[in-house]
Design a protein around this nucleic acid. Structure first.
Lengths: 198, 198
DNA sequence: TAGAGCATGTAATAGGTTACATGATTAG
DNA sequence: CTAATCATGTAACCTATTACATGCTCTA
């Protein structure tokens, strides 16, 4: 059976301070959009479970004009479970990369169309790189004394390294494709190989 | 509603030639392990659907001593649908990156333990890089005249670029963490911040 | 003789997203 | 006046993995 990491994503974010489900969602959306996401359908039931299991405490904060906030705070037991996960070896997870998958079947469309796809990919990653730089700036200005800062910096650095690699690969790939002479036009019947050596 | 890409992963692989569900699974396992995977529970039902929808034809190949092979071949209609997907813009997909997520909560464990995790990540990616090089060699030797070759090369190049970036980031991150003086020991009660500016 | 490979397939289960319900307030 | 923000929560749905059933052959 496969273990969900959402539980730890929630537990972990609670280590930043007491929070509501709404806050957690917002945090992942606004700050970690690049490599993690969570939906309400997961967050709220998990928070409830964490409370019944004694890993977090729940308190209701009344507000006027706005709905009540249900604030969850990590307990010592919750921290312990979080720490156990943090030090445990991380299993490798195969992310599905749609652009690369499409490229595997690039034979079935024209060179120009393949280039178009890689350009789209490159442009998206360029945008992401810009966003990361902006976020980095914002964080360095606003949260100077936060003890988590060094780790956020590492995450930003990761985003920079990886996105630069994406962009460099894309540029090279586009150049390679451009150099290939556009031979036979795209077929309307499958181009098949009748022997695959597996 | 969210659209599954498995359908196209199957359709696409059939563009390489007529194949069985077993072959498809093997292909993804052995050649594309880095960025895509499929399970029988998905493949077989989809093949059945493709046949009823006229996107693929099915023929049974009897064997002695072994179970029959159900071979599926792409039809013109199937190729058309594949091509439509191949040229359509690719939506961005947020892969969940467990090592990075753990790093976000690195405050809750020791510096040494954080370094340990990044080292594990680095070593895994080093292994992956080695595998990619080996696969690249094997492909270049065995399948010289395959028309899909240039696209496979691009996929290999992608793997090299990205894994080198992973490794470089990891080395830098480890160096950064090593330079940080190991201050207060790890807490057994949550280190919290009571203000998060969102 | 135990296990791996061949080969197809399904059922149970887990994981996750989306849409909806509720309802007040505030900004454009 | 419309849309967004605040805020919690659930039900329906889709996607995907795992385990199992079947059964033969070949290898260690």
């Amino acid at each position: 059976m496969k273990k969900s990491k959402t539980r730890f994503a929630v537990l972990g974010i609670l280590s930043y301070g007491p929070m509501s489900g709404y806050d957690i969602k917002k945090f992942y959306e606004q700050n970690v959009a690049g490599f993690w996401s969570e939906s309400y359908g997961q967050i709220y039931p998990i928070l409830k479970r964490l409370a019944t299991e004694g890993l977090a405490t729940r308190s209701v904060h009344k507000q006027e004009g706005k709905p009540d906030r249900h604030i969850y705070a990590l307990t010592a037991k919750g921290l312990e479970e979080l720490q156990q996960w943090l030090v445990a070896p991380t299993g490798r997870h195969i992310g599905r990369h749609e652009t690369l998958l499409k490229l595997m079947f690039g034979q079935q469309i024209s060179l120009a169309q393949n280039i178009r796809q890689i350009e789209r990919f490159r442009d998206r990653q360029k945008g992401e790189l810009t966003e990361i730089e902006a976020l980095k700036q914002r964080f360095q200005q606003e949260e100077v004394e936060d003890p988590n800062m060094p780790f956020w910096q590492l995450a930003f650095s990761y985003g920079e390294h990886v996105n630069r690699a994406y962009i460099k690969w894309a540029e090279e790939a586009i150049a390679t494709l451009r150099e290939m002479e556009p031979k036979a036009p795209v077929s309307t019947s499958p181009k098949v190989r009748y022997s695959i050596h597996c």
